[in-house]
């Protein structure tokens, strides 16, 4: 605390600083955990399998000690990220074509919209049917799930403002230059939005695939611990999943800001 207040006295209460350090918010979070602990310990909350947070910490320790957590986390992250990366390549490429070439868009967009209406989770049984209980099945599911937001955001991002295209024409830019200097940068902020959504969806669907299909990774760990009636370890697993999601999203944003500073600033997402 003394450190924080020293910083606060030297630096004017800038927006960035206020955005980063939210002591009240952190306190409320901890307080919430404390209330949970008390409520369970005093029997106020009485569910057979609701552990208090302290037990969850112990469970987390056990998971780490036995190495189960590391293995499961590595598997899930590998699958979710591979599927997502594949979807990124496919989605940005196909989305660019669909967004830039009107005839292609005209003759396929309605098909895509019809396919999009199919709830993605309903594809998990299909994938299990086609690929069995394998990591490949998981990657296919993760990729399919992440593909949609990336594809749709790329398509709409490629709809560059007509005025900017005219600017390119007036300044006599070549077609590749218009694509590279105007259309792609104009679409970047929206593509990044698609990539972020895609990443979180691919994580969710990886977990589902692990719960009903491939017995591996965090998804399997969760159902396994639930069935083995080890709620503390299961809650620890849920906590890890939440943190993994936050960390992945943060890493992606940091990378995007490093790579596309101007574009994200312009879209008001520079942070």
């Amino acid at each position: 605390m003394p450190e924080a207040s020293a910083v606060a006295s030297r630096v004017p209460p800038s927006k960035a600083l206020r955005g980063r350090i939210n002591a009240v918010g952190a306190a409320v979070f901890v307080l919430g955990l404390g209330v949970w602990e008390l409520a369970v310990r005093t029997g106020l909350l009485d569910f057979a399998y609701l552990p208090p947070p302290s037990d969850v910490v112990v469970g987390l320790g056990e998971l780490i000690e036995t190495g189960q957590l590391q293995g499961a986390l590595a598997h899930t992250l590998f699958v979710a990220l591979s599927g997502w990366a594949l979807a990124g390549l496919l989605g940005v490429a196909a989305g660019s074509v669909l967004g830039l070439v009107r005839p292609v868009w005209r003759y396929s967009m309605a098909s895509l919209e019809a396919l999009r209406a199919l709830p993605i989770v309903a594809f998990v049984p299909v994938a299990v049917l086609l690929y069995g209980f394998s990591a490949r099945m998981e990657i296919v599911v993760a990729c399919y799930a992440a593909l949609w937001p990336i594809l749709l955001n790329t398509i709409s991002g490629m709809r560059t403002e007509q005025r900017l295209i005219e600017v390119g024409a007036v300044l006599r830019l070549s077609r590749p230059a218009v694509l590279w200097k105007i259309r792609l940068p104009a679409a970047t902020a929206q593509i990044v939005v698609g990539l972020r959504l895609g990443l979180s969806i691919s994580l969710v669907l990886t977990l589902v695939a692990e719960m009903v299909g491939n017995p591996a990774g965090l998804g399997f760990l969760l159902v396994d611990k639930a069935e083995a009636l080890q709620p503390a370890q299961m809650f620890a697993g849920v906590f890890v999943v939440g943190v993994a999601g936050i960390v992945l999203n943060a890493l992606l944003m940091v990378a995007a800001r490093l790579a596309f500073r101007g574009q994200l600033n312009a879209a008001g997402e520079g942070g």
Partner: peptide, 11 residues
């Protein structure tokens, strides 16, 4: 919000 819906199922 960061907790994926799927992880809520076992809980």
């Amino acid at each position: 919000r960061a907790l994926p819906a799927a992880s809520l199922v076992p809980v």
